[in-house]
Design a binder for these strands. Structure first.
Length: 226
DNA sequence: AAGACCTCCAACCGCGGAACG
DNA sequence: ACGTTCCGCGGTTGGAGGTCT
């Protein structure tokens, strides 16, 4: 299609963000393809959003949505991710739904980088103590690392004695680490503190976000949104 | 100082499934 | 029932910025 040829790709500009916010405000955050198509034919030349519906949705879901938190994962959130991943595996969107303000992409990225680190540390341990890799095991370190991602790092975490395994869960034995209630309580406490101090504890917010997009939120009347 | 390497994360791709005509 | 369109998900990639040597 000719239209696809003029579609922009790559990083979003601030101008595009503003345009997307405008169209989301106008049409809601559901009909992405429609939104993208309509925006291309805008009568206002500078307001034409040359992006696919898919790209628009991604930008909104992962960045522009005002419900999102930005910044580092808190220890509470990290624990929650571990807990939920051990339960559900790589069901990122499902995990994300249980962690307010975090996206599946964010959690996925977090998991990949942090769990890779853990896997590498584990690999080091393996190489230091070759006895641990018995001759009966034909699993290479690379495979081990891959297994770590695929299984949610359960095997390696078991070695570390940090977390319970889903196998155990299936056996009906539950090794208590942190209950969901405890985690949620932790988050609530943290948020309470945050309110009292009138200062966000939940991660550092990107200066760009703070600086340029803040004004956008003010301009939009989110209460009437959808 | 500078090049190599690493980490992080935004964005893309491909696929499956739901919705709709 | 079937084909088409759209949406959402999980996996992957690439670039920017940071750290190491």
């Amino acid at each position: 299609m000719v239209q696809e040829e003029i579609m922009r790709r790559g990083p979003w500009t601030e101008e595009e963000d503003v345009q997307l916010l405008f169209y989301v405000k106008l049409f809601g955050d559901r009909r992405w393809d429609f939104l993208a198509k309509v925006s291309v034919f805008s009568f206002i030349p500078n307001n034409r959003l040359k992006r696919t519906g898919k790209s628009c949705r991604l930008r909104w879901v992962n960045y522009l949505n005002p419900d999102l938190k930005h910044g580092k994962m808190t220890p509470q959130e990290e624990r929650l991710v571990l807990e939920l991943h051990s339960k559900w595996g790589n069901r990122w969107s499902r995990i994300a739904r249980k962690i307010p303000g975090r996206t599946d992409n964010e959690i996925k990225n977090y998991w990949r980088t942090h769990m890779r680190k853990k896997a590498q540390e584990q690999r080091k341990k393996c190489s230091i103590s070759p006895s641990s890799s018995s001759s009966s095991s034909s699993i290479t370190h690379e495979e081990n690392e891959r297994n770590f991602y695929d299984t949610g790092g359960l095997k390696l975490l078991q070695v570390e004695g940090e977390r319970k395994s889903s196998d155990q869960e299936q056996d009906g034995k539950s090794m208590k680490v942190y209950s969901m209630d405890e985690i949620w309580k932790d988050i609530e406490l943290l948020e309470e503190k945050e309110e009292k101090m009138n200062k966000p504890i939940m991660g550092s917010i990107s200066p760009l976000w703070d600086y340029s997009l803040d004004s956008l939120w003010k301009d939009f009347d989110w209460s009437s949104f959808r």
